[in-house]
Write a protein that binds this DNA or RNA. Structure first.
Length: 496
DNA sequence: ATTAGTTGTCATCAA
DNA sequence: CATTGATGACAACTA
C-alpha cells in the first residue's frame, strides 16, 4: 500500500545533485501523474534529476543476473559462475524482459542483445554506469574498476554456421548411402562379384587371381606410364598363365605401384623378349614397356624385395635377379639400395585378365580416355564380348578407384578443416567466458555502488515526522514517466 | 593373435 | 539411357 510517504528530500547533497525531488513519490499506489505525488516544495535541481535517472538506470542492472533480489540489496561478486553455455546467454535473455527505461529520450526500447556486451545495456545504462561511477562517485582510483568492458565480441554466428553447415553437409551426404547400403547388404555376397566374372564361379578354385589382393592393383591411371601409343608396337605379352604362375605374391613395399609395375614389366618383357619382334594383331599392352620411357620415373629404380620371390619359377626369378644385377652395373644401379632386392611386382587382377584376353591397349587409355575417344579406340579393334566386358569393367573400376581415392582425400581434408573450426569455436567460447566473467565482475562493482547510493539516499529521506525511511522497509521504484516512488517493500512483495 | 589403417571394389545415387 | 563422380560399406591386406 502506498504509504503516501511524506519525506524530506535533501536539499543538497554535497556538490552532487541527488534526486529530482519533484519526481520522488512516497507511495507505490500514488499515481505518477497525481499532483500529490510530486514533492511538495522540493526544488527541481537538474543535476539531481540526472542523478536520479542514473540511479534508477543502474537498478536495471540488477535484473540481469539476480532478478529475484531486491533492487537495493548488495550484490556480491561471485567468482564461481557456471560455465558459459553456447546455447544460451543469460544476460541476453534476462535483458529481453527488462522494461525499457526512460532515460532522457536516449533509451532505445528495441535494443536487443546481438552478440556484443555493449549492446546489452541500453544507452542510458551505459551513461548511467559511467556517470554513476565518475560523476556521483568520484572516488580516486575507482575508475578503472568501474569501466565496463564495451568490447565487441566476435560474432558467434558465422563460424558456428560454418561449422554447422559442414556438419549438415556431412550428415546429408551420409543419409543416402546408409539406406542404400542396407539395400545393398541385402544383396549378399554377390556384391563383390565382378561384373564380368569370366568364368569365375562363386567359389572358384583358388587361382592366382584369388590369392592375390586387389590392393596391388595399378590401373595405370597416371600419365607417368609409358605412352601406349609407343608401346603399341611392343612385343607380345606373356600369357596369363605365365603371369599367374610367376606373380603369386605381393610386392608393395617401398615402391610405388606404377614404378613397381613398370619395373616388372621392363624386366619381364623387355629383357625376356628384347629382340622378339611384334607378332600379332593384338599384342597385349600391359606387360610391355619401353625402357627408355621408364627412365624418367624414379620409382622404377627403387629397390625390389626378394623375399617374396621364394617359390617363384626360377626363370622369372632369374630374370628379376638378373635384372637387378644388371642394373647394378648400369646407370640405373645408382638408385638401387644395396640391400634392396627387386620385389616382384604383381599385376593386378584386371591387368592379368587384360593380359590374358590380350587387350590391345593400355589400361591407362582404358581408364583415362574420354568416352568418345574410348569408344573410338574400341572401334579400332575387333574385340570379343569378353574383351569388351573386361575393358568396360577395367574402365569402371579404374575410375572408381580414383574416385575413391579422391573421396578419401576429401574426407580427410574435411576432418582437418572441421578440427580447425572446432578449435576456433572453442577459443571463441573461452573468449566469451572471459568476457562474461569480466562483465559480471564489473556488474558486481556497480551494484555495490548502487547499494551505497541507496543508503545515501535513504539517509537523507525523512517522513512527515522527520524520521528516516528504513531501507529495509522501502525501496525506490520508477515509473515509465520517470517519477520515482518510495514503495514499501511489503507492497512490492504483494505485487509479485 | 589382435588391431587399426590402407586400399580396391561394389552398389547406389545423382548430375 | 549411358556415363561419370561421389560415397558408404565391405573385404583383403599390411604394419
Amino acid at each position: 500500500m502506498c504509504a503516501a510517504a511524506n519525506y524530506v528530500l535533501p536539499l543538497r547533497r554535497h556538490s552532487e545533485g541527488l534526486a529530482n525531488l519533484g519526481r520522488l513519490c512516497g507511495g507505490v499506489s500514488m499515481p505518477a501523474h497525481a499532483p500529490e505525488a510530486r514533492s511538495r516544495g522540493a526544488p527541481h535541481d537538474p543535476e539531481m534529476d540526472l542523478a536520479w535517472r542514473e540511479l534508477m538506470a543502474i537498478t536495471e542492472l540488477q535484473e540481469f543476473e539476480v532478478p529475484h533480489e531486491g533492487p537495493y540489496e548488495t550484490i556480491l561478486y561471485h567468482p564461481t559462475e557456471p560455465p558459459l553455455s553456447l546455447g544460451g546467454y543469460s544476460m541476453a535473455q534476462s535483458h529481453s524482459h527488462t522494461e525499457p527505461l526512460p532515460c532522457g529520450g536516449e533509451t532505445n526500447p528495441d535494443i536487443a542483445y546481438e552478440g556484443t556486451y555493449s549492446e546489452v545495456m541500453p544507452a542510458c545504462q551505459h551513461q548511467a554506469t559511467s556517470e554513476l561511477t565518475e560523476t556521483l562517485y568520484r572516488h580516486p582510483g575507482t575508475h578503472s574498476g568501474t569501466q565496463l568492458n564495451p568490447r565487441v565480441l566476435n560474432p558467434l554466428l558465422p563460424p558456428l554456421m560454418s561449422f554447422l553447415e559442414h556438419m549438415s553437409l556431412t550428415s546429408v551426404a551420409g543419409e543416402g548411402p546408409v539406406g542404400k547400403d542396407n539395400a545393398g547388404l541385402s544383396q549378399g555376397p554377390s556384391r563383390h562379384m565382378l561384373g564380368t566374372d569370366h568364368g569365375q564361379s562363386k567359389h572358384p578354385p583358388r587361382t592366382v587371381d584369388d590369392l592375390e589382393s586387389d590392393s596391388g592393383l595399378s590401373l595405370g591411371s597416371s600419365p607417368s606410364l609409358a605412352s601406349p601409343d609407343d608401346v603399341m608396337t611392343g612385343v607380345p605379352a606373356c600369357s596369363s598363365t605365365e603371369v599367374g604362375l610367376n606373380y603369386n605374391h605381393r610386392g608393395t613395399e617401398s615402391m610405388g605401384e606404377q614404378g613397381r609395375r613398370a619395373s616388372l614389366l621392363y624386366s619381364m618383357d623387355y629383357q625376356q623378349h628384347p629382340t622378339q619382334p611384334y607378332s600379332g594383331p593384338h599384342p597385349s599392352y600391359f606387360p610391355v614397356t619401353q625402357p627408355s620411357q621408364m627412365q624418367p620415373q624414379p620409382h622404377f629404380l627403387l629397390p625390389m624385395s626378394i623375399k617374396h620371390q621364394q617359390g617363384l619359377p626360377s626363370a622369372l626369378n632369374d630374370l628379376n635377379l638378373n635384372s637387378s644385377a644388371s642394373r647394378g652395373s648400369s646407370s640405373q644401379a645408382f638408385y638401387v639400395k644395396p640391400r634392396g632386392n627387386p620385389p616382384p611386382v604383381p599385376l593386378s587382377r584386371d591387368e592379368r585378365k587384360a593380359h590374358a584376353l590380350k587387350i590391345p591397349f593400355p589400361m591407362e587409355k582404358i581408364i583415362n580416355l574420354p568416352v568418345d575417344d574410348f569408344n573410338e579406340l574400341l572401334t579400332k579393334y575387333t574385340l570379343t564380348d569378353a574383351q569388351l566386358a573386361l575393358v568396360r569393367d577395367i574402365r569402371r573400376r579404374g575410375k572408381n578407384k580414383v574416385a575413391a581415392q579422391n573421396c578419401r582425400k576429401r574426407k580427410l581434408e574435411n576432418i582437418v578443416y572441421l578440427e580447425g573450426e572446432l578449435g576456433q569455436l572453442q577459443a571463441q567460447r573461452d573468449h566469451l567466458a572471459r568476457e562474461r566473467m569480466e562483465f559480471q565482475h564489473n556488474l558486481a562493482i556497480v551494484k555495490n555502488r548502487l547499494t551505497d547510493l541507496y543508503a545515501e539516499v535513504f539517509s537523507q529521506l525523512r517522513d512527515e515526522d522527520g524520521h528516516p525511511y528504513s531501507i529495509d522497509d522501502y525501496s525506490l521504484q520508477q515509473t515509465p514517466d520517470g517519477n520515482v516512488y518510495l514503495v514499501p517493500r511489503s507492497d512490492v512483495l504483494d505485487g509479485e
